[in-house]
Simulated assay, not measured.
Amino acid sequence: MQLLLALVFFSLGMVGVAIRFYMVRKDVEAVLMAFPGSRAFSDYEVFTELSVYAARTYLITCVSSMVVWPMPHIRRGMLDPLELESLPTAVRKRALYSHWLMATFFLWMCLFAYDLTVTQWLRDTFR
């Protein structure tokens, strides 16, 4: 039963990763058009010198965090609320779903690993 539960959440996490890969391939231009000259992406040019794929992944990850938690970015002055509203709704939904699927996967995998550790410790202790 534990293994089945772990596989279900692993599959959900992989769906989140697949959505993120799709966004890296298809949505970067839409994101750059929605955030022209934004302070949030000042490091984007540095990453493009290293690797185009790494830069795109960094950009999409930043956008996902801005969609999920916009207020800290707005308070720091890195994001204008109008810029966030100009982001296409399809990109916003994909970022939201990808972020929460991967966060759920991470949380459940931590709990699963903790459960395995405690179960093994109890077996060894009370044998």
Results as ranks from 00 to 15, higher is better:
residue 114 Y to D: 08
residue 74 I to M: 14
residue 84 L to T: 11
residue 78 M to C: 05
residue 84 L to E: 08
residue 46 V to E: 10
residue 52 V to M: 03
residue 39 R to Y: 10
residue 5 L to C: 08
residue 3 L to P: 01
residue 117 T to P: 03
residue 57 T to P: 00
residue 106 F to Q: 06
residue 110 C to P: 00
residue 56 R to W: 02
residue 87 L to F: 08
residue 22 Y to C: 07
residue 29 E to H: 08
residue 116 L to M: 15
residue 29 E to K: 11
residue 17 V to S: 03
residue 103 A to H: 08
residue 67 V to I: 15
residue 23 M to T: 00
residue 79 L to C: 01
residue 96 L to M: 11
residue 79 L to R: 01
residue 18 A to E: 08
residue 94 R to G: 08
residue 99 H to I: 00
residue 12 L to C: 10
residue 20 R to Y: 02
residue 71 M to Q: 14
residue 59 L to W: 04
residue 40 A to N: 04
residue 38 S to N: 06
residue 51 S to N: 15
residue 88 P to H: 11
residue 103 A to D: 03
residue 92 R to T: 15
residue 41 F to N: 04
residue 70 P to Y: 12
residue 18 A to T: 12
residue 83 E to P: 00
residue 51 S to C: 10
residue 40 A to E: 02
residue 77 G to R: 09
residue 110 C to D: 07
residue 82 L to E: 14
residue 61 T to F: 05
residue 63 V to R: 01
residue 45 E to I: 09
residue 20 R to C: 00
residue 27 D to F: 06
residue 55 A to Y: 06
residue 12 L to G: 14
residue 46 V to R: 10
residue 52 V to P: 02
residue 80 D to T: 08
residue 15 V to E: 08
residue 78 M to W: 13
residue 70 P to F: 14
residue 100 W to G: 01
residue 107 L to N: 05
residue 60 I to G: 01
residue 117 T to C: 11
residue 99 H to F: 15
residue 82 L to Y: 07
residue 56 R to K: 14
residue 44 Y to T: 06
residue 95 A to P: 11
residue 105 F to V: 02
residue 43 D to M: 08
residue 5 L to V: 14
residue 19 I to F: 04
residue 121 W to F: 15
residue 94 R to W: 02
residue 115 D to H: 13
residue 44 Y to R: 05
residue 65 S to G: 09
residue 17 V to Y: 08
residue 122 L to R: 14
residue 56 R to A: 12
residue 107 L to R: 04
residue 9 F to T: 13
residue 76 R to E: 15
residue 64 S to G: 12
residue 5 L to S: 09
residue 20 R to S: 02
residue 126 F to G: 03
residue 78 M to R: 10
residue 85 E to K: 10
residue 103 A to C: 04
residue 109 M to L: 13
residue 34 A to L: 11
residue 99 H to A: 10
residue 51 S to R: 07
residue 118 V to P: 05
residue 117 T to D: 09
residue 49 E to I: 12
residue 98 S to H: 10
residue 85 E to H: 04
residue 39 R to I: 05
residue 19 I to E: 00
residue 85 E to S: 13
residue 62 C to I: 09
residue 5 L to D: 05
residue 85 E to Y: 04
residue 17 V to T: 05
residue 4 L to G: 04
residue 13 G to E: 06
residue 9 F to E: 00
residue 36 P to E: 07
residue 94 R to V: 01
residue 7 L to E: 13
residue 102 M to V: 09
residue 96 L to G: 02
residue 82 L to D: 09
residue 88 P to I: 09
residue 104 T to Q: 02
residue 61 T to C: 04
residue 108 W to P: 00
residue 8 V to P: 01
residue 59 L to R: 05
residue 64 S to Y: 00
residue 24 V to Y: 03
residue 33 M to V: 05
residue 89 T to K: 11
residue 33 M to T: 05
residue 65 S to H: 13
residue 124 D to Y: 13
residue 1 M to V: 11
residue 120 Q to S: 11
residue 95 A to R: 03
residue 65 S to L: 14
residue 45 E to K: 07
